[in-house]
Design a protein around this nucleic acid. Structure first.
Length: 501
RNA sequence: GGCGACAUAGCCAAGUGGUAAGGCAGAGGUCUGCAAAACCUCCAUCCCCCGGUUCGAAUCCGGGUGUCGCCUCCA
């Protein structure tokens, strides 16, 4: 049984074979840091974080590199608007990106690269392309001569002739400088007042596509295993990367190319240019705000957002709607309460290690890799990272654990043995970890520390008295008041009322 | 105009030849002063439409219809 993944380059699923056995070199196209990240970015980096986590779980030694585009016209424009500098804008939104990703439980890359720190590599690569006849200077710019590269179009499956035929007037505008309208800039000469770097072609800044080619070469070598990014990058960005890198090195840039589907709103792609985007922090609330989950100003928890994306196939577009938020929140509540099973019921089940520091640490858990659940999980994930199929395993475990937990709470004991529950719980925690899902703290514990047990008991007594006097309005009022504090009452036969937070 | 993707229950969604996973929501029952909680049970004769191949198709082939993406910055 082996891992199979969909390769955009060949348009089919292929068995995963690395260049070096047991090692994976992967590169992900990062963000251009000129604004807060939106849900499209969230999906992208959650997707590749999950792929990375799964490859690690499968035993691969993974080296994951991601870039920040911190030289770009949009950053420049933003700086002009804000009366700021390109560097300040870039640093602000790079920091914001890290904050957002941390909340979404996206692991940090092994290495981050920045265009501003790759100028040498970029210039070396452009020089090389120039020497080999793939690049030519013009008016202070340097362009890549697309027609010199035989494989141009192999990733996106298009022919130059087709593209130009249908593109209308859009590509014809700057033909005065370019030799061919499809040629793209490797280096852009600086205009008056723009930041610049010195180069053999005069002061200027790198084009967008060249930085990825240079960074990959610098950090990972001529060929890598997986290159990934949003499906909107297939053309021209990734196509151009291939043209640049392969013309220079003579080796395939990447063995596999993977692309995630877009996030849609009302059936249309979420994007900056359409203005229909929701930023991650708009949806989740500002990161510095510490708000209880019951607070209506926080409509979605980070893990629910992550789960929302994982419930769909990473390659298909997803529609982001209010209904989707609600459904994902509900789904997450189910998984979350099961993930908390150990902390909540472990001591009642006689687990002696509940207080150990590693009790909740999946890395310290020994689960049975041969168990039916783990095998089902792996079979799903091996099939091009079928996270939706994998989640079915988690939900089955979660439903059983929640049922057992409810029995413990309401009946005093579960009808499943402590050992089996422990195995199920640890399996759930470990598999959830592979998908980057981790328990959020119980919503009531912190927020409702105001009421002591004694106060609760006192109120229950008052309510019992009201009930005895058939003053149900008063008894219901007391129940509601307690419920508002996160305390649930359970009336049992015989006039006994139990409660839990 | 060129290239490509998708169409499965109220909603989301897995499944690529062997008779429809899972989630959300919903319904009924037990219980209850009511409500809530809990537990039990139910929820696609069918996979956009029309043909074809096959013992057998949501799954393969042909033809439609619809939606979306890329071809300009984009995750």
């Amino acid at each position: 049984m082996s891992l199979v993944l969909y390769n955009t380059l060949t348009r089919q699923k292929e068995p995963f074979e690395t260049l070096t056995p047991g090692q994976v070199k992967m590169y992900c196209c990062g963000v251009t840091v000129y604004d807060y990240s939106h849900l499209g970015h969230a999906r992208c980096y959650i997707t590749w974080d999950t792929v990375r986590r799964y490859l690690m779980w499968r035993g691969y030694d993974v080296h994951y590199v991601q870039n920040f585009t911190d030289i770009d016209d949009k950053i420049l424009n933003r700086a002009k608007n804000d009366g700021s500098s390109m560097q300040t804008v870039a640093e602000t939104y790079t920091q914001a990106y890290f904050e957002d990703m941390e909340r979404l439980n996206v692991l940090e890359a092994d290495e981050y690269t920045y265009a501003t720190q790759t100028l040498d590599g970029i210039q070396r690569l452009i020089s090389e392309l120039e020497q080999k006849g793939y690049a030519y200077p013009a008016n202070g710019d340097v362009y890549y001569a697309v027609r010199k590269f035989d494989g141009y179009g192999k990733l996106s499956g298009r022919k130059l002739e087709d593209m130009l035929a249908g593109a209308g007037g859009r590509v014809a505008t700057d033909t005065g400088i370019k030799r061919d309208p499809a040629d793209f800039a490797l280096w852009k000469g600086a205009k008056e007042g723009e930041p610049f770097w010195e180069s053999p072609w005069g002061p200027g800044r790198p084009g967008w596509h060249i930085e990825c080619s240079a960074m990959i070469r610098d950090r990972l070598g001529d060929s890598i295993d997986i290159h990934m990014g949003g499906s909107d990058l297939v053309f021209p960005h990734h196509e151009n990367e291939i043209a640049q890198s392969e013309a220079a090195t003579g080796h395939p840039l990447s063995r596999y190319w993977m692309h995630n589907g877009m996030v849609n709103v009302g059936g249309e792609k979420m994007s900056k240019s359409l203005g229909n985007f929701t930023t991650i922090r708009q949806l989740l609330g500002e990161p510095e705000q510490l708000i209880g989950e019951g607070d209506p100003t926080v409509p979605m928890s980070p893990m629910a957002l992550r789960l929302f994306f994982l419930q769909a196939s990473y390659r298909k577009p997803v529609d982001f709607t209010q209904g989707a938020i609600v459904a994902a929140q509900g789904s997450w509540a189910t998984l979350n309460s099961a993930l908390l099973f150990g902390s909540k019921h472990g001591s009642k089940l006689g687990w002696s290690d509940v207080k150990d520091s590693d009790f909740l640490n999946p890395a310290a858990m020994r689960i049975d890799r041969e168990s039916a659940q783990v095998q089902q999980f792996q079979t799903a994930m091996d099939q091009d990272f079928n996270t939706a199929g994998a989640l079915a395993v988690l939900f089955e475990l979660a439903k059983e654990l929640n049922r057992a937990g409810n029995l413990i709470t309401h009946a005093g004991e579960a009808d499943t043995s402590s050992n089996i529950l422990r195995q199920q719980w640890q399996t759930l925690v470990c598999l959830a970890e592979v998908l980057g899902l981790k328990a959020s703290p119980e919503n009531s514990t912190e927020a409702d520390g105001k009421l002591s047990d004694e106060q609760v008991e006192a109120m229950i007594e008052q309510r019992q008295a009201a009930r005895a006097a058939k003053n149900f309005a008063e008894s219901d009022r007391l129940r509601d008041e307690l419920q508002a504090q996160g305390i649930t009452l359970i009336d049992k036969p015989g006039g006994v009322t139990e409660w839990h937070r």
